[in-house]
Design a protein around this nucleic acid. Structure first.
Lengths: 111, 111
DNA sequence: GAATGTACTACGACAGCCGAAGTATGTCAA
DNA sequence: TTGACATACTTCGGCTGTCGTAGTACATTC
């Protein structure tokens, strides 16, 4: 049993923006860092990731720009915008609230 | 800013099942109890609630049976099944994991 | 007699996730 | 040198769960 996509659904934007706070990055790297940071507990699907990029860029939270790997291969990099930082902060607040709410309905002892 | 439906999406089943652990109940009451327990932080939409009932019953997590209000009005009650209890326990575990994962990407200090 | 609360049901739209498949390049071992 | 594997994506279409809108029906309260 892993993490259901329905639970993580509202958090993918938060996760991606969080990683972009450390500086520009690109799809494959973001995906790798999520795997590493969660010890494989969460492996984001490629389609989910790239569609999130599109959505976040349309919303003005991130900006794309072309870049190159060491070997000269093209890559699409993304950087977080000021509005993206604001959105991230809001999402963190929302998470705090959500956590409080949900935990009222979690019973660890003999349910 | 409240709770986004995308974040709560994977938790509605958990919330409903949790309330049914206390004994059989029906739509309107479940809805009221969620509002009360969260101090209006989360108000589940009627359509969301009733479609969750249908889904959970199809999945064998709950069972419906007819009942009556004090004034004789018909109501549809739901009770949790053994399989529903198991599912609830799994969901609680999943929540623990999800929380750990998501919080790696939450930065409270100057993001 | 009008508004409000209770207790639902039906329908259809929409967002986001995801499987399947494809493309194109580079690396490395047998 | 060929074939597997990693990198770095894109396109398409299906599915699930949420939600707006609307409607029904009865009871209570002002």
């Amino acid at each position: 049993m892993g993490i259901s996509s329905d639970v993580i659904r509202g958090c993918n934007d938060t996760i991606i923006l969080c990683l972009l706070l450390d500086g520009p990055s690109y799809g494959y790297e973001i995906s790798r860092r999520i795997r590493l940071m969660t010890e494989d507990a969460y492996i984001i699907k490629e389609t989910t990731l790239y569609s999130a990029f599109t959505r976040l860029e349309k919303a003005g939270c991130i900006e794309s720009f072309p870049g190159f790997a060491e070997n000269g291969k093209r890559r699409t990099y993304y950087r977080i915008t000021e509005s993206g930082r604001r959105y991230y902060r809001e999402k963190c607040e929302e998470w705090g609230l959500t956590k409080t709410v949900v935990e009222r309905f979690i019973r660890e002892e003999n349910p």
